[in-house]
Design a binder for these strands. Structure first.
Length: 874
RNA sequence: GGGAGUUUAGCUCAGCUGGUUUAGAGCAUCUGCCUUACAAGCAGAGGGUCACUGGUUCGAAUCCAGUAUCUCCCA
C-alpha cells in the first residue's frame, strides 16, 4: 500500500470487497450458540438500477448489520429482488416497441419469454451496485419474488386464504389508460387540478312539460345513463319522485330513484347514474338492479351506444355535445369547475375509470393483530409518529384488490369451468381433480381455462420475511426457526401500507408472530429545491458516479450525516465531499501513526502520559453514549459523535500533544497506546465506513489471512475517569485562549510566551499547555502585569504579557462587551432568585444551581471590572 | 375533503418528562497560517426576538389554543 497524502478509494474498495467475499465473511448459518440478527432487504425492482433512495436505505441497513455483527450477533442480511410486475412489464413493452413489436401481437407465452430475457439480462445489475456500496449481504441467500420457492409460496397462500373464505371476486373500477390500452395501478395515476366545466343539462320529464336539471362534468357519458338519483329527504327534488325522465339526445326513458347516497347540496341535487363509468354509480346500479351501459371503447373513443358520436374521442365528443345540447336548448347553464383528474404516469393520457371483475382479499381479520402489535410496541416504529398514520389506515382498512391485468407476474391459480364457475387450486391437475368432483358433465383437463390476471406485486412481497426463509412451504425448517422474526426493517414511509402493514399481517397469519421487531423509516431523498429525486425529473445524481468521485465510504457518510429517521434528506453533493474529506483525514492520521519509529530508550514525556490517560478516559466516556445512540437508531448522531471523536479529540488534540518532532522516535508506551486507540476508532467507524477501516486495520498490525475488522467486537467501555476529562476540558480552554491571543496579537507560534495565572490553577497539566502553546513558563502571580492580555477560564484569570503589542482601546471594548454579557446573565439569575415563588416552588437542586451561577458570574464580573479599571487608568 | 407532521444560525439538524440554554452541533462564512500526517489541512472568530398571537406557570424553544407556512399520506 502506497501512503500518498490523498486517500484513493477505488482500489481499496474493490480489493476489500473481494477479500470479504473470498472468505465468505457475510455468510450466516443458524447457530444456536449465538443470537441471530436478521434483516431482509426491501427487494429492489429486478431490472432497476441503484438510485439515491436505495443508496440511503441500504447504507442504513449495512450500518445496522455490521454493528450487530461486531456486537457478537449472528448477523444475516438477506438480499433479493422484486419482479415488480407492472414496472418490468412496462419496460419490456417499451423495449419491444423499439423493435416495432406490440404486446397485443404476441402470445402470452412469447411475451413472458421476452420478459424473462429482459430480467436475466438486467436483473442482478442492482445487486452488483449494492456490492459497490459495501452491502454485507449473505449473497448465497439471494432471492427473487418469482423464483421457484417464492412463486410456490404465493400460490399456496392464495389457495389457503381462498379456502378460508377471505378471498372473493367483485367488480371494481380500474384506472384504464386508453393510450397504453391497459389498467394501471393507483400509484401510477397522477392527479392534476383541471379547469373544467360543470354542465347543467335538462332531462325532460316523461309525459309532462317540466324537466329536471342534472349537473355533470362529463356530458359524453349520458349515453350510459340508466337512472337519475335524488335524496329521499331533499325538498328541492321531491317533485321528481316516481317520475320517469328522458335522457337528452338518445331519448331513452329512465327512472328516478331515491337514495341517501346523493349529496343534495351538490349541483342540483339530481345525480345521473352511469354504472359503467363510476364506481358509486355501479353500486347504486347493483342495489336497484339497473342495467350497465359501457359507452367507451378501449382507446377512449365512444362506442356504438352513442348515436352519431360513435368513434369520436371522448373529449371531442364532449365539445360537440356541448354545442348540440345547447342547440337543442337542453343546457341550462355551464359553470367553470376546478376538479382533479387522473393522468397516466406513463402516457399522460387522461385515465378512464372502468369497471372490471377483480379478486379481493378481505382484510378485516388480518388487520386486527397487526394493528395491536404496532400500537403496543411489539413492533416498534422509528420514529413513532408513524404509529398514528398506521392506526388510522388499519382502522379503516379496505379489502385488497390483488389482481392485475398484466402478464408478468404470478398468474392467479383460478380455473374456469366451461359451463360457468371456477375452482382454485395450486396446480391445474389439482384443479381438474377438484372440478371433477363438483361438475356433473364430462370434463377434460383442457376444458379448464386459467384466470388471465396476475397478482399485485405486493401480494408476493408481503410474504417476503417468511418466504426468503422458505417459511410458507416448510414452516419448520431450520432457517425460519432460527432467523424469524427478523430484527429491523428499513424502508420508506411511502410504502407503510402497501408493504409494511401487510407484512405484519402475513407474519401473524402464518407464524402467529410479527415478522420484525423494529421498523426504521428513512426519509425521502430530495434535491436542493425540495423535489423528490426521480428519474422523470432527471434531478437525481447517479450514486455510482458519486461513489467513483468520493469513494463509497465518503458517499455513505455523506448520506448518513444528515438523515435522522423519518426526516427527508435534502441531498447535496457537499455532504459527500465532507465524507471524502473525513476518509482523507483518517488516512493521514494513519500515515502519521504508521510512520513512527519507536525507540525503547526514549522515556515517555509527561505530556504524552497525560494525553494517553485523557484519551483513554474520553474514549470510555464516549462509548456508552455512542451505544445509546445506536439503540435509539440515531445513526446520524452516532456517526457525528464518532466523527468528532476522531477528528477533534483524537487528531487535533491527542495526536498534536503526543506527536514527536520530525524524524524523532516515539517512546514505546505512547506508541502502543496510540495504535490501540486507532484500532478502537477504526472499529467504531467500521459500520459507517467499511472499506477504509478494513484497509487500515489490516495494515495496523500483522493479520492472518481471513481475519477482518468486520468480525471484531466493538470496543467495550471500562470505568471512566470523569474528573480527568472535565479537568482536561479546562486545559483545552486555556490553550485555546493562548492561541487566540497569539492570533489577535499576531505573535508567531515560534515566539515563546510566558503565561501568568491569577487565581486557582491545577498545574498537573502544565506540560500539555507548554507543549501545545510554546510557553516557557507558567507562573502564579498576585497581580496581573500591566502590558498584557488576559482571559478567564472558570474564575481563574490567565495573563499573557504582550509588551508593547497591547491595544488599550481594543481591550477596553472587548472587556466591556464581556461585562455586558455577564451583567445581563447575572440579572436573569438574580431575577429568579429574588422571586420568592421561585425559591419556594423550584426543586432545591435548581435553586442551588442558580446560586452557583450567581456566584460564578459575580466573580467573573469582579475580575472583568478590575481589568477595565486598570486599562482605563493607564 | 379527511388525517398526520414541519417551522430553532446562510444550509442541514439536535435540544427527550418545562429550570445546568440571554439556545447547541456539523457544514458554509470571515480572519491568520503552505507549522515535515493531512490546504480534501491547521489555528482562531463571528452568526439566532427558537414562524406569529395569546394562554398556563415562579419560570416556556419546550405544555395548551388559535393563525400562518411548507410537506406527506389517503380520497
Amino acid at each position: 500500500m502506497e501512503l500518498t497524502s490523498k486517500y484513493n478509494p477505488a482500489d481499496v474498495e474493490t480489493k476489500n470487497y473481494q477479500y470479504w467475499l473470498k472468505h465468505k465473511l457475510f455468510r450466516s448459518v443458524p447457530d444456536d450458540c449465538r443470537e441471530p440478527y436478521t434483516i431482509v432487504i426491501p427487494p429492489p425492482n429486478v431490472t432497476g438500477i441503484l438510485h439515491m433512495g436505495h443508496m440511503l436505505n441500504n447504507t442504513i441497513q449495512d450500518v445496522l448489520v455490521r454493528k450487530a455483527r461486531m456486537s457478537g450477533k449472528n448477523a444475516c442480511w438477506v438480499p433479493g429482488t422484486d419482479h415488480a410486475s407492472i414496472a418490468t412489464e412496462a419496460k419490456v413493452i417499451a423495449k419491444l416497441a423499439q423493435q416495432g413489436i406490440r404486446k397485443q401481437d404476441l402470445s402470452r407465452e412469447q411475451f413472458i419469454q421476452h420478459a424473462w430475457d429482459w430480467t436475466n439480462e438486467h436483473g442482478g445489475i442492482i445487486l452488483e451496485q449494492l456490492k459497490k456500496l459495501g452491502a454485507s449481504c449473505d449473497w448465497d441467500r439471494t432471492c427473487f419474488t418469482m423464483d421457484e420457492i417464492r412463486t410456490q409460496s404465493v400460490i399456496r397462500v392464495f389457495c389457503d386464504l381462498y379456502r378460508q373464505g377471505k378471498i372473493y371476486k367483485d367488480v371494481r373500477m380500474v384506472n384504464w389508460d386508453p393510450k397504453a390500452l391497459t389498467a394501471v395501478s393507483d400509484e401510477e395515476v397522477i392527479y392534476k387540478e383541471i379547469q373544467g366545466k360543470l354542465y347543467y343539462i335538462k332531462y325532460k320529464i316523461e309525459g309532462k312539460d317540466g324537466y329536471a336539471v342534472i349537473a355533470t362534468t362529463r356530458p359524453e357519458t349520458i349515453f350510459g345513463d340508466v337512472a337519475v338519483c335524488i335524496h329521499p329527504n331533499d325538498e328541492k327534488t321531491k317533485s321528481f319522485k316516481g317520475k320517469k325522465l328522458i335522457v337528452p339526445l338518445v331519448n331513452r326513458v329512465i327512472p328516478v330513484i331515491e337514495d341517501d347516497y346523493v349529496d343534495a347540496e351538490f349541483g342540483t341535487g339530481c345525480l345521473k347514474v352511469t354504472p359503467a363509468h363510476d364506481v358509486n354509480d355501479y353500486r347504486l346500479g347493483a342495489k336497484y338492479n339497473l342495467e350497465t351501459i359501457d359507452v367507451l371503447n378501449d382507446d377512449g373513443t365512444l362506442n356504438n351506444h352513442c348515436l352519431n358520436y360513435v368513434g369520436m374521442d371522448r373529449f371531442a365528443a364532449r365539445t360537440q355535445m356541448e354545442k348540440d345540447l345547447a342547440h337543442a336548448g337542453l343546457i341550462e347553464k355551464i359553470e367553470p369547475y376546478t376538479h382533479k383528474v387522473g393522468f397516466s404516469e406513463r402516457t399522460d393520457a387522461a385515465i378512464e375509470p372502468r369497471l372490471s371483475m377483480q379478486w379481493f382479499l378481505n382484510m378485516q381479520e388480518l388487520a386486527k393483530p397487526a394493528l395491536d402489535a404496532v400500537m403496543n410496541d411489539t413492533v416498534k416504529f422509528c420514529p413513532a409518529k408513524f404509529k398514528n398514520i398506521y392506526r388510522h389506515w388499519m382502522e379503516n382498512i379496505k379489502d385488497w384488490n390483488i389482481s392485475r391485468q398484466l402478464w408478468w407476474g404470478h398468474r392467479i391459480p383460478a380455473y374456469y369451468l366451461p359451463r360457468g364457475g371456477f375452482v382454485v387450486a395450486e396446480t391445474k391437475d389439482e384443479a381438474y381433480q377438484e372440478a371433477l368432483r363438483t361438475v356433473d358433465y364430462p370434463l377434460t383437463i383442457d376444458d379448464l381455462r386459467q384466470d388471465e390476471d396476475v397478482f399485485d406485486t405486493w401480494f408476493s412481497s408481503w410474504l417476503w420475511p417468511l418466504s426468503v426463509f422458505d417459511g410458507i412451504l416448510h414452516p419448520d425448517n431450520a432457517d425460519i426457526s432460527y432467523y424469524y422474526p427478523t430484527q429491523d426493517l428499513v424502508t420508506a414511509p411511502e410504502i407503510i401500507f402497501f408493504w409494511v402493514a401487510r407484512m405484519i399481517m402475513a407474519g401473524y397469519q402464518y407464524r402467529q408472530e410479527a415478522c420484525f421487531r423494529n421498523v426504521y423509516f428513512t426519509g425521502i431523498v430530495r434535491d436542493k429545491l425540495g423535489r423528490k429525486m426521480s428519474k422523470s425529473l432527471g434531478n437525481s445524481p447517479d450514486p455510482i458516479a458519486l461513489m467513483d468521485k468520493y469513494g463509497a465510504d465518503g458517499v455513505r457518510m455523506g448520506m448518513l450525516l444528515t438523515s435522522p429517521a423519518g426526516n427527508d434528506l435534502p441531498f447535496d453533493e457537499s455532504l459527500c465531499e465532507q465524507g471524502r474529506n473525513f476518509s482523507n483525514k483518517i488516512w493521514n492520521a494513519f500515515r502519521l501513526v504508521k510512520g513512527w519509529q519507536t525507540d525503547n530508550t526514549v522515556l515517555q514525556p509527561e505530556a504524552s502520559r497525560i494525553a494517553v490517560q485523557w484519551f483513554e478516559a474520553l474514549l470510555n466516556q464516549t462509548l456508552p453514549e455512542i451505544e445509546d445512540l445506536f439503540e435509539k437508531y440515531r445513526l446520524s448522531e452516532a456517526l457525528m459523535m464518532i466523527y468528532k471523536l476522531f477528528w477533534d479529540e483524537f487528531s487535533s488534540w491527542y495526536l498534536e500533544i503526543i506527536k514527536p518532532a520530525y524524524m524523532q522516535p516515539v517512546d514505546p508506551t505512547t506508541c502502543s497506546a496510540t495504535l490501540h486507540f486507532f484500532d478502537s476508532l477504526l472499529k467504531l467507524l467500521h459500520p459507517f465506513m467499511p472499506f477504509i477501516t478494513e484497509e487500515l486495520w489490516q495494515s495496523l498490525d500483522k493479520r492472518e489471512d481471513g481475519e477482518s475488522i468486520m468480525l471484531q467486537m466493538t470496543p467495550q467501555p471500562k470505568q471512566t475517569d470523569t474528573q480527568l476529562t472535565s479537568d482536561f476540558a479546562k486545559v483545552k480552554e486555556i490553550i485555546t485562549g493562548v492561541r487566540s491571543v497569539r492570533l489577535q496579537k499576531n505573535i508567531p507560534t515560534k515566539t515563546p510566551l510566558h503565561l501568568q495565572v491569577v487565581g486557582q490553577h491545577n498545574n498537573a497539566f502544565d506540560t500539555v499547555i507548554v507543549r501545545l502553546c510554546n510557553i516557557e513558563q507558567i507562573n502564579p502571580v498576585k497581580e496581573k502585569e500591566d502590558q498584557s492580555v488576559s482571559f478567564l477560564v472558570g474564575t481563574t484569570e490567565y495573563v499573557v504579557p504582550v509588551n508593547d503589542l497591547l491595544n488599550r482601546e481594543e481591550e477596553i471594548t472587548k472587556t466591556e462587551t464581556e461585562i455586558n454579557y455577564y451583567e445581563g446573565f447575572l440579572s436573569t439569575v438574580l431575577k429568579k432568585l429574588s422571586n420568592e415563588k421561585f425559591v419556594a416552588n423550584a426543586k432545591p437542586e435548581v435553586v442551588d444551581m442558580e446560586r452557583k451561577k450567581q456566584l460564578d458570574a459575580e466573580t467573573k464580573l469582579k475580575a472583568l471590572r478590575d481589568n477595565l479599571t486598570k486599562l482605563k487608568n493607564k
